[in-house]
Computed example of a mutant assay.
Amino acid sequence: MAELHISKVSKHYGDFKALHNIDIQIDNGEFLALVGPSGCGKSTLMNTIAGLEDISDGQIRMANKDVTNLAPKDRDIAMVFQSYALYPSMTVYQNIAFALEIRKRPKDEIDKEVKRVARLLKIEHLLERKPAALSGGQRQRVAMGRALAREPKVYLFDEPLSNLDAKLRVQMRTEIKKLHKRLNTTTVYVTHDQVEAMTLADRIAVMKDGHLLQLGTPAEIYSRPVNMFVAGFMGSPAMNFISTTISRNDLGEFVIELTASQQASYSLSLPNGTDYSDWVGREIIMGIRPEHILADPQQLPAVLCDIEVTEPTGADLLITTSVNETEIIARVSPESEVTASRAHELFFDLKKAVFFDPQSQDRLNLASTKSL
């Protein structure tokens, strides 16, 4: 177990900057997920931690030791690559056992550990095969087994579940969570799958174009995104963004203006306690999650919407409609009596809405009216 400190790390390839002053403190036993679109720099950052890529600036410390210039073999890490990186001439058993043999562990201990990992990953029947005889998903499980058989200071996972089928991916996600809880080993996990990040990680680092945009708990990232990119990237379906204006009604309440079915206009009162004075009469972007737009009668502001598409998913019903000439999605109960090509009232939980500056796309930190 080891604390990992990535301090102002940058990586340049000629004039191209792949990483820009990344600064992340990972505590002992913490599980950190790195997420972002392809090309955002998350795998490059992973490789610098592993020592597979030199850094251009900054420092990497592990267990309070500077490992910036150490070779990968001297960093006491175990890494699972997206590309498997198995030894083709070795059997599955030998691939898993190899790192333990290098450390001169007793033969019976190695055998016990290999078989334990094989049971965990459901690959007992593959132990005598070589990588060429395995499917992509089987190779990935063997690569995971090779890392799990060791007890390093830090685990590094580079999209380890990407080649597994949906059912096995869920099972392995659970097993990884159980394993981390049992071993409490510091873990850095790269994924493009936000569900993996949300369910596995203690904290999530969201990256874009080599920049760290936000670092926080899954709840913080999901509920209080720093900007529209983070808000739209985390969550499936993505957060809805509605361009609107804020005004005051005759009671002095702050309201937003929405137009929906047959161009009918609605003034929805915003919850008390927040001061929107600086944005009255100005364009603003409201972000609201699909699950915060409801279809059943609530003590919430309602808007009559033309339902364009309904998509039953079993646990939910996804509804597509338009507000302010913007397509939005609501996630409602599958028992809701909503049908396509008809109008239906949707109820907006504005207490859960967040607001963004349309120019900078940053989330607004609005003052409380109680402090005025």
Rank of each mutant, 00 (worst) to 15 (best):
L100V: 09
D54C: 15
I96R: 07
Q59H: 10
D54H: 15
K115V: 10
A99Q: 08
S89T: 14
K65W: 02
Q59R: 05
A99V: 03
K73H: 14
R105T: 12
A99I: 13
A97Q: 01
D54E: 15
L52A: 07
N69F: 05
L52R: 09
A99H: 06
N69E: 13
R105D: 13
D76Y: 04
D54W: 04
L86V: 10
I60Q: 06
T91A: 02
P72M: 03
K104H: 12
I102P: 02
I60P: 12
V117I: 11
V92L: 11
G58T: 11
L70P: 05
S89Q: 10
L86N: 10
L70C: 07
Q82I: 05
A99N: 10
I110F: 07
D76P: 03
A85K: 03
L86D: 03
T48I: 14
K112C: 03
M90S: 15
N69M: 14
T48W: 00
V67E: 01
F98I: 02
P72I: 13
K65N: 11
E113H: 00
Y87G: 15
D74M: 10
R116V: 05
V92R: 03
P88V: 11
I110Y: 01
T91D: 11
E53Q: 15
Y93H: 08
A71Y: 15
R61P: 00
G51P: 05
V114I: 03
E109Y: 05
T48M: 12
K104G: 14
D57S: 07
I96M: 14
M62P: 00
L100D: 08
F98Q: 04
Y84K: 13
T68F: 04
P106F: 09
D57R: 13
I110K: 02
P72E: 07
M79G: 01
A85F: 04
L86H: 12
A63E: 14
S89C: 09
K112H: 05
Q59G: 02
M90N: 10
R103A: 15
A78M: 11
K115C: 06
I110T: 05
Y84V: 07
D57C: 07
Y87E: 07
N95K: 13
T48K: 00
D74V: 09
D57Y: 08
S56W: 08
R105H: 14
I77T: 02
K115D: 08
T48L: 02
P72S: 12
K65D: 04
I55F: 04
I110A: 08
K115H: 12
A50P: 05
K73I: 06
Y87W: 04
Y93L: 13
R116L: 01
T68I: 04
R103C: 15
D111C: 00
N69R: 12
S56K: 05
E109T: 13
V114H: 01
F81D: 11
K112M: 09
F81T: 09
T68C: 04
D108F: 04
Q59V: 03
Y93K: 06
V117Y: 00
S83H: 13
S56N: 09
L100P: 06
K107T: 01
F98T: 03
A50M: 11
V80A: 01
P106I: 08
S89I: 13
G58N: 12
K115S: 06
K73R: 11
L52K: 10
A85Q: 06
A63Q: 02
I96A: 03
E113Y: 00
